[in-house]
Structures are given as structure tokens and as C-alpha cells.
Write a protein that binds this DNA or RNA. Sequence first.
DNA 1: ATTATTATTTAGTCTTACCTAAATCAACAA
DNA 2: TTGTTGATTTAGGTAAGACTAAATAATAAT
Lengths: 230, 230
Amino acid sequence: MVLSEAIENYLKAIYQLCHERGRATTTALADWLEVAPASVSGMLKKLSSDRPKLVQYTRHRGVSLTPAGEKIALEVIRHHRLIEMYLHQALGYSWDQVHDEAEKLEHVISEEFEDRIAEKLGHPEFDPHGDPIPTKNGELPKLSCSCLSTMSKGQTGRVRRVRNSDPALLRYLAELGIVPDATLTVSERAPFGGPLHVQVGAEPGAAAHALGRPVTDQVFVEVDGTAVDE
Amino acid sequence: MVLSEAIENYLKAIYQLCHERGRATTTALADWLEVAPASVSGMLKKLSSDRPKLVQYTRHRGVSLTPAGEKIALEVIRHHRLIEMYLHQALGYSWDQVHDEAEKLEHVISEEFEDRIAEKLGHPEFDPHGDPIPTKNGELPKLSCSCLSTMSKGQTGRVRRVRNSDPALLRYLAELGIVPDATLTVSERAPFGGPLHVQVGAEPGAAAHALGRPVTDQVFVEVDGTAVDE
DNA sequence: ATTATTATTTAGTCTTACCTAAATCAACAA
DNA sequence: TTGTTGATTTAGGTAAGACTAAATAATAAT
């Protein structure tokens, strides 16, 4: 079964939205894919009537993936994240450069290519942003961490994942040293969703950086050694 | 200017046909691209009326590239051959596997990717089949060799290039040891386009292989140290 | 020079995936 | 219950890039 790039992107988007926000609505998909809502309606109708059925869709009710659809979504995500890792490790791309390149390559590489870069990389479990790389049979490495915006004053943790692909944001975070494996300590928490102040690194006297909600919502941390949340 | 994959393939095909056979006709293009002749007519009309003009076309007269079109064709060919070399050298692909993968990747990689793999490879001049890789400014490394089918009995030479991407043929040639840099000696020449017998390697007593015209037309050799032809 | 053959173009369709504008549905407040 | 609003779908259309069938031009053979 050979799927168009457009369809692969819809499946991937549905997967991500369902997992990151609980459900995938027409508007959310339109936003994510940068197409008109009407186009999403049309595509969902098509996807849900085609066989094999890749999505479960009822008008006005949002959409979810069937097992067949999820399998494909995970294959595309595996491609994407393996490629990101390869670009980073083998070709020296910085973590803010990898997403755009992977976005195009993910649709065209062969199984052969996938296998060879996975091999070269030693079958990594996470990509340069800490996103888990699905295995060939569609299993996701478990990652136990919680969102930075839920941490309270005094807590310390290790950065595990930055779930955002905006190059400017990634460069900003890298500048502050907020990258996977870095140690963070919350030195101050303003109330009412105000900025969170974090120290980067293990030294106690380090300068703190004030981070707003849009940033702290994207950073995931493994607190101490005791972790909750997905 | 962002071009579709289809257009890039037309430009590449026109380039190759003009250089390998002197001219690019509608039927030859249709054959090469595996589309109907009518589709080629339509595309050529479009390409020659669009601006910037990428091809020079007059109905019933064949087509050629304008300087602008040739520039793009050479960029795509550079992508293709660099990728082939990268797959071979960095990922261990065999020479019969690289073409198909490169055919898809060539259209989606960025300038960044191109530069990085060229760098990793040490700016190679030839791909795994001996095809010259255009430089960034569109220059082709000069390759002095002549077609195996023009060699006469007793002549010895070094394989420089195999201009064919059929995996089965490439595997067959590799099996015989006919790969770039191998030494060949013509031990027998049947008349009237009959098979050519070649010994592979430097040892005088080696067994000879009989090769038909379809094969010998694709293999290019640098005879002794004195070479002619392009 | 006329006919036969082959190459090429024209005309008219199809599919995919997008769009805008208009209609409809769902959810919630008055 | 009845609006009102926002989300969603329907209707109708466009652009690429392919196709088939029919018409025409070029080439070769008689």
C-alpha cells in the first residue's frame, strides 16, 4: 500500500494531536497542517471511507486512528525521528536544523535506508529533542517526565525532552543550556502563571533565567529520580 | 523558484538525452520517463511558455535546455550522484542499490544537506558508477574514456564508467569483476556485432567472458593511457 | 508523387488535494 | 425555547500532471 505524502501527514497529525491534546478535531488539524478546515473535512471523509480504513471518523465528532492507521503514523514518526538523529549525529546538524529536513525526507526513504541509519546509530531510543523513536513494531520507549511548568520552587530535575520544533525557540533554549540531560533547578515561581525562574547546571549559585508559560509548557523534566506523568 | 518533482525529472531527462544521444524527442522522453507521449507534449508546451524559460521547444522539432534549465538539471544531477556516493560510502549500499533511493532523495534534500555530504565525502568527482558529479557551479569533471564496444582485440584498458542503472545488470557486471578501476583485456571480437570476449584483471591467463552489445555499449574504458571519446 | 508508417500534437477526461463561500450543526446563554 | 456563535460540512472550483482517442505532421517506401 503506497500512500501520498499528504495522507501520511494527516495520519501523523492525527496521531500527535490525539496524544498531545487528547483528541483531533477538524480545526485543530487544519491549524496544524496549515490547510483550510474544509480541506480537512474532505480528506477525513475520504480516509474513513477508503479501505483499508485508516481512521475512525464521524462528522462533527473528531477523528482517531484505527490500528492500521496508527501503524502507519508510527512508521512515519519513526522515520522522522531516526532521520533527525542521523542528521544530528552523522552530519553535524544542530537540533534546530533537523526538523525541516526530516519533514521532507521521512516520506521518501526506503525500509533499507531506515534500517541502515538505525544500525549506524546503534538503534537509538530518542531523537535530539528527546522524543521517543518508535521501534519497528510500533512500540514507544517509555519516557517518564513531567512538564517543566508543573514543577514547584526548589525542585531539581534533568531535562528529558523539548517538544517543539521551532528553530528560534530551540536556539534560544540551547543558548540557555536547556537541552536534553541538562540539570535544572526551579529557583522561583511567580504566581498566576507568571514566569518560572530556573537555574541551569549543578552549581548552586548559577544565574536564573525567567521562562514564560509558552516555553515551560514545552520542556519536560525528570524530577530528581522520582517521576510521574507521560 | 521552487520546481515540482515532475519538472525536475523532465529537465534531467532532457539533459541526459541530449548528452547521450544528441537530441531529446517527445517519444524518447516519454520512454525515459515512462509516461505517455501526449503527456510529454503538454509538459514541454508548458515549460517553454513559462518564465523563466527553462527549455527551448518547437513543435515537432524536439527540445533542448536553456542555460537556466541546464543549471537546474545539473543541480539535480549533482544531488543524485552525490547521494549515490554517500549511500555507497557512508551507508554501505552496493552500487546496484543506490540509484532508486537517490532518485527519490534528489528532489527533497536541502542545500545544507548537499554541502554536508559533499564535505563528508571529500568532494568526490565521480559516483559509484563512475558518472561525473557536477560541481556547485555546474562544471563536469572531465572523463576521458571510450565505449567498450569500440575496443579491438588485444586492447587493454581500465573501467571508468558504467552508464546504466539497472540493478540486475549492475549485479551481473559486479559478479564478473567489471566495476570502475578494473582492468579489462579484449581477447576476442566476433564480427557483425557479435559478442566481445574480455578478460578481467591483470593476469594473462584469466578466463574470458562473452559480452553482448547491450552490455558493452554501457561500459566505458580508458584504454592503456591513451584515451579518446567523451 | 503518392501512400504507408511513425512521431507528435490536440482535445477532452480523470484524480489528488487544495481553495472560497455558503449552509448546517452543536453548544451554550438568554 | 430561541438565538447566537463557533465549528464543521457541503457545494462548486482550480491547478498539476497524468491518461486515451483522434487528428495531424514528418518520414520513408513504393
